[in-house]
């Protein structure tokens, strides 16, 4: 229960910080550079469910005015121990896509980097799972150790429709969250045991669903572009 309260407080703090973020004053030139960030929700999820660890990082770059190319990479690890069996899973995922910033032309043309965005991702994951310490129980004959499920490698592909907010809370530091509608396109199955979670996707049993990210990111200020010259570089 304390963990849930802490999680709620962290979420609230993130939202309040984003809402009260200091707006940079207009400058003559617009800063451009790749933005690198990580998803805090994986850390929070690990705190709530220590058996599960999912970490992801992302990078984006404004390739055209209001359009940001986006790449996400992540890792998932599960080590779940139950009386009936132990389950381990391990895998990686990648998401590639682009976001469109709906605020780009509504804010001042320079030094305003806040985003309300929508985007698309094509996502892929490669992962393994295995089971051991399988207990087959009988009320009369007692428990019996079953045959271990050896490591099995699988792949999955899905698409995500993204909507989110990203706010420059401090100079070059951004806070944001996104909500994602996911549609599974393809996933392999182990005939001996169902997959619990697909890295980057979530519960493997669902064919579509929602996921959330809470990101903290830093923009590397590589170049400055004169106002009105935010064209392809």
């Amino acid at each position: 229960m304390n963990r849930k309260k802490t999680f709620a407080c962290i979420s609230l703090l993130l939202i309040l910080l984003a809402g009260s973020a200091t707006k940079t004053t207009a400058q003559e030139k617009r800063i451009k550079g790749p933005r690198l960030g990580f998803d805090v929700s994986g850390v929070v999820s690990h705190y709530l469910n220590p058996e599960r660890l999912s970490l992801s990082a992302y990078a984006d770059y404004e390739i055209m005015p209001a359009i940001y190319a986006n790449v996400e990479l992540g890792r998932m690890k599960i080590n779940r121990k139950q009386p009936s069996f132990d389950y381990k899973a391990n895998g990686y995922f990648a998401k590639i896509g682009a976001d469109y910033n709906f605020l780009q032309y509504k804010l001042a043309p320079v030094a305003q980097y806040d985003m309300i965005y929508g985007g698309l991702r094509f996502c892929a994951a490669r992962y393994t799972h295995q089971a051991s310490q399988i207990s087959l129980s009988s009320d009369y004959w007692g428990n019996h150790r079953g045959e271990d499920i050896s490591k099995y490698t699988m792949q999955a592909y899905w698409a995500e429709l993204v909507a989110g907010i990203r706010v420059e809370a401090l100079k070059n530091f951004f806070l944001g969250w996104s909500i994602r509608g996911q549609v599974k396109l393809f996933s392999e199955e182990d005939p001996r045991m169902k997959t619990l979670r697909i890295p980057g996707y979530g519960k493997a049993s669902r064919s579509s669903g929602l996921s959330f990210t809470y990101t903290i990111s830093y923009r590397i200020p590589l170049t400055k572009v004169a106002a009105g010259k935010t064209t392809w570089r």
Binding site: I134, G146, M193
Partner: peptide, 13 residues
């Protein structure tokens, strides 16, 4: 034959 039931229930025979 060992059969998977679910991640919450485990396996059965």
């Amino acid at each position: 034959e060992q059969k998977f039931v679910s991640h919450n229930c485990g396996f059965t025979t």
